[in-house]
Design a protein around this nucleic acid. Structure first.
Lengths: 342, 342
DNA sequence: ATGAAAGCGCTAACAA
DNA sequence: TTGTTAGCGCTTTCAT
């Protein structure tokens, strides 16, 4: 049996489909006599009527749906962000269409086009790079969008990100307070705001602590993965550079450090202190528990969703960006340096 | 400027919209003169024509979309399954609409209705409980669906799951081979197939090894969470029961054991060997690395997607279920029991 | 306050 | 092989 349509409801209630539409839509219910409205509603319920959002979208060019672009759901940073987004959208009747780009720009482009043709009303984007033609174009076209976690070089695009500079500064301060002076950094990809800002803040924090910068202590990683973190640390160790602590650009890079320490028979924190960034789930249970810069993941997602909804409701209003303050979670991966370096 | 429609393309190419439709759709291209088809295609490309899937769905009652129900994306078991699903769907032009149910049956019901009204062509479902009226009803209505990870009591619904019995058996065999005879089990929720099957297999494996079953060594957890795992192990320890190893119903429950050992000042594996189930990402990096039953997460998703696509293409065919063989990943959380128990 | 009519963009009979 | 026609289910002018 075909599911009932608006026409069925209207027929049954003895009104015109247009009237039934008005009665059933809270936005337009005021236009209709209260009694008829109630009658229609009752019939709709009796028939088990479910409005067809596809037909509605075709007519209205809206969809109560937003697109959520994530680089990689298997990175534990992102599921909590997704959850934050859903938590805000769902009470107002919106849904998120989640897509994984796998850090592939072509894939991302085709997914964005597909989402647009499905009439998503806006985007929440966790895949931003500093220069990102696709996203810049979307923004130029006036497509409502909010960046999360990472920003574009163009600060005019609204975003919700951790205060990366403050976080890196805290990390360095923590290490210096333990007595470290030779602090290395595994910088993330320099085509991302997080990679660039954290690196810059690391440098400035060293300077602020009167520590001279040593380029040999910086390795730049090509992606935010455990593998790349391992590559970076191996490179630093093999260069013969002398350091007692390392700041990972994020937790995945720090995880890669753990792998290298293991393979080299070094121990953390005795031989090397390690600090991560993001404090994603489970790093508190690693061996050893990872000291990391904590950022409120779920709140990032929730705040991004709020911003986007706000933009959808007030198309004129000037877009804001939000910087969320991090905190440091000190755990056993950091300790004072040994008298003799490794 | 309004995006071009099929009408625009047809006009520009000097054909009727219907012809343009046929030319642009690979399925119907054969019905049209090759030259005209090419002309239409060229015009479409020139105009940057994008078909409107909403209009198409409204007409065809299909959507090239399936619904993917996940209980909780922040459980690292699920992102790889999602990835496996996408990896299979995407090459054939299908997309998955991912929804988080948060283990809330009401939420799940409303999300399923919403997905159905969006014309999803089928479901891949990771939220099954043994008795699950919503899913049973879907199946009864003939909605194409494939369960993943967990099954319904009704074995007639196609599913892709690990061979839970084999896994639990391997875990017990591993522990007994180390010399353990007092082996506890934190059983998962008994309204899920995974919870029930693993518990049963644990029992049978003990018997097969000539170990008498002791009900005091089994705690049943109300949910598959770290918190519940902790509750369960505390209960076992407080009961004064005597055991040297524990098999967690899944990795989250095993993680909860880690928390309790830490809070009681006990050490793993010296005081207690712990085995998990699923071998989710990161458990190999815990303190200590967790011995766990490895199941191929991504493959589960991929296989489920294959099954579903198959059902969509051959509606008549008899549905199959797939059991994937697990392996055991032996790590440092298991060791021979000490002479003196804790 | 309600109805009539039109159309969102596309596809599937049917006709030619 | 192509065009005609109709309609998927809904909303929104416009008219009454």
């Amino acid at each position: 049996m075909r599911p009932p349509t608006l026409r069925d409801v209207a027929l049954q209630a003895g009104v015109h489909p247009a009237t039934a539409s008005r009665a059933l839509n809270p936005e337009t219910r005021g236009l209709v006599n209260e009694d008829t409205a109630n009658r229609v509603i009752k019939v709709a319920k009796a028939l088990g009527y479910r409005p067809n959002p596809i037909a509605r979208s075709l007519k209205t060019a809206r969809s109560a749906t937003i697109g959520l672009l994530v680089p990689d759901l298997t990175n534990p940073l992102f599921p909590p962000i997704v959850r934050g987004v859903e938590q805000v959208l769902s009470p107002v009747g919106y849904s998120a269409w989640i897509v994984n780009t796998d850090n592939d720009l072509d894939r991302e482009r085709s997914q964005v086009m597909s989402l647009r043709s499905r009439q998503v009303e806006g985007f929440i984007i966790a895949t931003a790079r500093l220069h990102h033609p696709l996203l810049e174009q979307l923004h130029a076209e006036g497509v409502p969008m909010v960046l999360v976690n990472r920003r574009l070089a163009d600060g005019g695009v609204p975003s919700v990100t951790p205060d990366d500079a403050a976080g890196a500064t805290m990390a360095v301060a923590h290490l210096t307070s333990l007595g470290h002076t030779r602090i290395a950094h595994l910088a993330g990809p320099q085509d991302t705001s997080t990679g660039v800002v954290r690196l810059r803040a690391y440098r400035e924090a060293l300077a602020a602590h009167g520590i001279e910068e040593d380029p040999a202590l910086i390795a730049t990683c090509a992606s935010w993965t455990e593998q790349e973190g391992a590559v970076g640390l191996r490179q630093l160790l093999d260069s013969g550079a002398d350091f007692t602590a390392v700041l990972g650009g994020n937790d995945m890079l720090a995880l890669g450090c753990y792998d290298v320490l293991e393979e080299r028979g070094l121990s953390c924190p005795q031989d090397l202190s390690v600090v991560g960034f993001n404090d994603v789930p489970f790093v508190d249970k690693l061996r050893p528990p990872l000291t990391s810069i904590h950022v409120p993941h779920q709140e990032m997602g929730a705040e991004a969703a709020h911003l986007l909804l706000d933009m959808l409701q007030n198309p004129g209003r000037h877009p804001r960006s939000v910087l969320l303050p991090p905190t440091i979670a000190v755990r056993q991966s950091t300790a004072p340096p040994r008298a003799h370096t490794p």
